[in-house]
Design a protein around this nucleic acid. Structure first.
Length: 758
DNA sequence: GAGCACTGC
């Protein structure tokens, strides 16, 4: 184990304030390549397309004025412009939130339109669980549409199925297809975004019918099907492909939809079912309808809606938008608590800070109310909470006590809480947003789909109520759905995958939602720098090809693939696995905090966070992968367990790529060199202004307070894994490096210049 | 002195 050591020695010649040797990014290398010029021409074409085409579903759908938010543009000292989102909480409006029952007061409008079966308020409820399997199947809402769906599939290449959770579409439609004989000339394939959904659905279907799963019906993840396309681009073994949960719009959903549309042109016999929960049916229909004429009989796609199973949810809006939605949600909860009948309350806010604020305000009010106001238990719920603390939100409160859970988005999709009857929706969500260079965390208005999803959390056992902290008119101005990942994330992985599939011209690819051209350029630029793309604009062999094989961000894939040469593949594997999981260190609230910090300090090393993570991983293995050990050191056991799993998978893939498994036996420098070889585009140096500057963009950067290096004397040169813009641009997962390594390991990317040259 | 949430090849 490496221990936290003394400060790094600062060599005077590296100090930028003293002049001397300097390092600069060589933009000429990337932009000078002929293919990049050609791509720029394509970009112009693409931009024209975008302007002419229909992109309203992306970011334009949001009305920035609605929540009186403004963007402030900050100018970096060297001319770079960064965007940070400043939240202004309805500054001009100071009316307090006040809710009444429908009919009590005309100030409050009730809206039941979004509890109609075709929209998003729903929860899974199985009233027929005592019936036989066959009887249960026939009672599912989708059963009445069985022959209609089969008819449409005979006549149209694509059928868009819009239905709620609980309608049974994911388990029943594949069986209808199989019963109708679609499984005879080829397999029926259903894709899901998550692995766990694949296994549970497959098990359920196997239980219900007598087919051999994997022979006639097959559930796969979207990513796996994309991978299958690398071997068989036309997917000849399938007769029908059903893409489920399309509304989630993951990167792979969009890649898959684009690719399947391509396949359809070549394979007229291939049938496609696209199933989605929200109202984006029309967009999907237009995307898959190859009919260019106005003659509806020539349509190649059709839409069918399936009812869900919903308990009614009453929706209330504020007469005036809340000035401070945290305060307003506290008031709303108190109003519910004193005026309404029993039932749990779930509050949706955007972040940990807001959750904590709301929880303490509610606890204060609750104790002020005392016994006469009725008892209230208030629990926070967010991802960085300790496991046992998260559990509190799930437990039933004692008789006569009302449970109030204040949560982040965590409770919207990934977790279902029992006993919730009332939902308080702030109307905002914090999202990760790629700005062309780095990711930012921005607070944005939640979409209509998201609002409906939140509303659906009210009342699993009976009808519920949702209180939205904005005006009814404002609901219509919200975007229909959260923007797909494709338009708001770093695209380097997606581009690499598409290139491995033979899509050479990314800008001409038929994306369901075209990403910004600048994001594509940034991705191509990064891949070129990493050597995954050659001068000819093609994927390089074997490096680029192998990078596409690894399910990792390209920089980490590169780092792994060169780790054999640096004789530290064992260590780099562990580091990469640890970088893939979040919240390794638990940060408890209250008195335990300093104990946790002190124990976690055992793992810290002066070389940075990556090596600290390696330390944690090795120590965890030495503990026998013990959860007790994790508890003692305030290490997230689940995260470590996942890291072990990821590492195993990566190791197998890496060996397939022909990389030798070697350990450097504690030679930290070779590990740091290897990290530099992968992450070199993300280098920063300590500027005389006191903060760091990115070598590539001169963007001012700061060490994230969670970093090992935050409390140590600042090293001159660092490499980071990612930058996250919140209050400032923070570098995370740092490694201390020598600048000479940049020249040595990435001579095509960096050149030595004298101060003043840049 | 700061941490939205996931997932996957």
């Amino acid at each position: 184990m490496w221990r936290r050591g003394a400060a790094a020695v600062v060599e005077p010649w590296m100090c930028c304030s003293g002049g001397g040797v300097w390092m600069s990014y060589r933009p000429s290398v990337a932009s000078g390549a002929a293919w990049l010029m050609w791509i720029l021409v394509e970009v112009i074409l693409c931009v024209v397309n975008v302007v002419e085409g229909n992109r309203s579903d992306v970011s334009q759908g949001r009305n920035p004025d609605r929540h009186k938010r403004k963007h402030s543009w900050r100018r970096g000292s060297l001319g770079e412009v960064t965007c940070s989102c400043v939240r202004v909480r309805f500054a001009e409006m100071s009316l307090k939130g006040r809710f009444l029952k429908p009919g009590d007061d005309s100030n409050y409008a009730e809206d039941r339109s979004d509890v109609e079966p075709t929209s998003g308020t729903s929860f899974i409820f199985n009233p027929n669980r005592n019936l036989s399997l066959q009887a249960q199947r026939q009672r599912l809402p989708v059963f009445s549409l069985r022959s209609h769906i089969l008819y449409l599939l005979e006549n149209y290449q694509t059928v868009v199925v819009v239905g709620e959770t609980g309608s049974g579409k994911s388990t029943q439609i594949p069986q209808y297809l199989q019963e109708a004989g679609w499984g005879q000339d080829g397999m029926i394939c259903i894709t899901e975004p998550r692995r766990v959904a694949c296994t549970t659905l497959a098990e359920r279907v196997a239980e219900e019918c007598d087919v051999i799963l994997g022979r006639e019906i097959k559930y796969v993840t979207e990513g796996l099907l994309v991978r299958e396309m690398m071997a068989d681009p036309l997917l000849r073994q399938y007769s029908v492909i059903m893409v489920d949960e399309v509304h989630e719009r993951t990167l792979f959903t969009d890649i898959l939809l684009g690719l399947l549309k391509k396949v359809q042109r070549k394979r007229k016999d291939l049938r496609l079912i696209v199933s989605s929960a929200t109202v984006d049916a029309d967009q999907l229909f237009r995307f898959f309808n190859h009919n260019a004429t106005k003659d509806k009989t020539k349509d190649t796609a059709a839409v069918v809606s399936v009812e869900g199973r919903n308990f009614p949810v009453d929706v209330f809006y504020l007469q005036e938008a809340a000035a401070d939605y945290v305060r307003s949600s506290v008031d709303t909860v108190l109003k519910i608590h004193t005026k309404e009948g029993p039932g749990g309350v779930l509050v949706f806010l955007t972040g940990v800070e807001e959750v904590d604020k709301c929880v303490s305000a509610l606890r204060e009010e609750s104790s002020r109310l005392g016994e006469k106001g009725g008892k209230m238990q208030v629990w926070p719920l967010h991802g960085s909470l300790h496991n046992s603390d998260q559990l509190q939100a799930f437990l039933s409160p004692p008789q006569g006590v009302r449970k109030v859970v204040v949560a982040t988005n965590l409770a919207e999709t990934s977790i279902t809480l029992p006993g919730i009857v009332f939902v308080v929706d702030s109307g905002f969500v914090k999202l990760r947003w790629f700005n062309g260079q780095s990711d930012a965390l921005v607070v944005v208005p939640a979409s209509q789909a998201s609002a409906n999803q939140r509303a659906g959390r009210a009342g699993r056992t009976r009808s519920g109520q949702v209180y939205r902290l904005y005006k009814e008119e404002d609901f219509a101005t919200l975007s229909q759905a959260t923007p797909p990942e494709m338009v708001r994330t770093n695209l380097s992985s997606a581009v690499l995958n598409l290139m491995a599939l033979g899509i050479d011209n990314m800008l001409r690819f038929d994306f369901p939602s075209p990403p910004p051209a600048s994001h594509l350029i940034a991705a191509l630029d990064e891949l070129f720098a990493l050597g995954a793309i050659g001068e000819d604009g093609q994927l390089t062999r074997p490096l680029g090809q192998n990078m596409a094989e690894l399910p990792l961000p390209p920089q980490l894939a590169k780092m792994l693939l060169v780790s054999g040469e640096h004789e530290c593949s064992e260590e780099i594997l562990s580091i990469v696995a640890m970088l893939q999981v979040q919240n390794v260190f638990i940060d408890p609230r209250g008195g335990q905090r300093h104990i946790a910090r002190a124990r976690q300090r055992n793992f810290q090393v002066k070389e940075g966070d990556t090596l600290t993570l390696l330390n944690v991983y090795k120590s965890y293995l030495r503990s026998g992968q013990s959860s007790k050990w994790c508890g003692r050191y305030f290490i997230n056991f689940r995260a470590l367990r996942r890291a072990v799993e990821i590492r195993g998978r990566m190791e197998r893939l890496l060996m397939q790529c022909g990389v030798e498994m070697k350990s450097c036996g504690g030679n930290v420098e070779s590990i740091r060199r290897c990290i530099t070889a992968g992450l070199f585009p993300s280098a920063a140096f300590l500027h005389h202004s006191g903060c760091y500057h990115s070598v590539r963009t001169s963007l001012p950067l700061h060490i994230h307070p969670s970093s090992t290096l935050y409390t140590l004397p600042q090293p001159q040169w660092v490499i980071y894994h990612e930058v996250l813009h919140t209050t400032q641009a923070f570098m995370r997962d740092l490694t201390v490096i020598e600048p000479s390594w940049l020249l040595e390991l990435a001579p095509h990317y960096y050149e030595k210049t004298q101060l003043g040259d840049t």
